[in-house]
């Protein structure tokens, strides 16, 4: 019998659904920061090896995204922002996502190790472990500090890129890590402020749920202030220079000003204008990271031509 009308077509996944499982938007951040980490490193890498390395770092990031979606399918079903993801929407089965995630994790770590060095491969494996086991399975559902500690997973890519070139960890790569690590909490807390009930409905102990929105606004300001010294430290490091310093000063002033503005608002004001300041801060936080790492890239290009740097 070949009566196709009896089949539920909504459950048949297309190629794009598998791509969506790898969280391509998160991947873009991973690709960019890892690429910068690799390019600014003092050891030159063959362009094809560099391309391969970035590709497998991205694939590793995608694999951890698939494993995250497998484990968090129950939460994703509840939250408005995530209920159209392939698993909650019923297009891909949980087991399939788990299999894909594990297979891609293995391929990406082994291939990165073979293409560059064992330190980089092992570092990628640790990053996937940290994101999936430490953040997704453990911290996310148990502590309001989930974003703070879990943010480390997103901060590792520039260190992996640096390790691809040098095979080591150094002060410069640690400063790049620190920049993303300290940036993550205000970035996600501003999202939590205007994604109102999503996290509470899903039972995720975000700071907005456990400590209230007033405390979240205070935390955002504290973290943006603590972030600034790391940004300036990176600008004054051997991979920094006048361009990075100028970017760091301007971006951090803008970030702190945005956080002060958020702190000065109460819920009534925010609701009245549709969380305009919180949304603007969230968008600025994305630009903050891209421009900061973009400045590092510009500085490295200038240095290659005998300009830039200290």
């Amino acid at each position: 019998m070949s009566d196709l009308s009896a089949i539920d077509h909504g459950h048949e996944a297309g190629f794009g659904d598998y791509v969506q499982l790898l969280k391509p938007r998160v991947m873009s951040l991973v690709v960019f920061t890892a690429m910068v980490g690799l390019i600014v490193a003092p050891v030159p890498v063959h362009p094809f090896v560099a391309f391969t390395a970035i590709l497998f770092i991205a694939l590793g990031g995608g694999a951890s995204g698939a494993l995250n979606m497998w484990y968090d399918a129950d939460i994703d079903r509840v939250m408005r922002r995530t209920r159209n993801r392939p698993i909650p929407a019923g297009r891909i089965g949980g087991g399939e996502a788990l299999g894909l995630g594990i297979a891609l994790s293995g391929i990406s770590c082994i291939m990165l190790g073979l293409a560059t060095n064992l330190v980089a491969g092992a570092f990628l494996a640790f990053t996937i472990f940290f994101y999936v086991v430490v953040y997704t399975m453990w911290l996310k559902r148990s502590t309001p500090q989930n974003i703070v500690i879990g943010g480390a997973a997103g901060a590792f890519p520039p260190m992996i890129g640096w390790a691809c070139a040098t095979g080591t960890v150094s002060v410069e790569s640690l400063l790049m890590f620190a920049l993303i690590f300290m940036w993550t909490p205000p970035h996600f807390w501003s999202l939590a402020l205007f994604m109102k009930d999503d996290y509470s409905k899903a039972g995720v102990p975000m700071l907005t749920v456990t400590h209230g929105r007033r405390a979240t606004r205070r935390h955002i300001l504290v973290y943006t202030i603590l972030l600034a010294p790391f940004a300036l430290g990176l600008a004054l490091s051997p991979i920094g220079g006048p361009v990075v310093l100028a970017a760091a000063v301007l971006l951090n002033l803008g970030f702190i000003a945005g956080a002060v503005r958020i702190l000065g608002r109460d819920e009534a004001t925010a609701e009245a204008d549709g969380y305009r300041a919180e949304k603007a801060f969230f968008r600025f936080s994305l630009a903050y990271l891209f421009l900061h790492f973009g400045a590092l890239l510009v500085e490295a290009s200038l240095r290659a031509h005998g300009l830039g740097g200290w």
Partner: peptide, 11 residues
């Protein structure tokens, strides 16, 4: 359904 499967296989 066939289009979707073909797309997946080509991908």
């Amino acid at each position: 359904l066939h289009h979707r499967r073909r797309g997946r296989n080509f991908g």
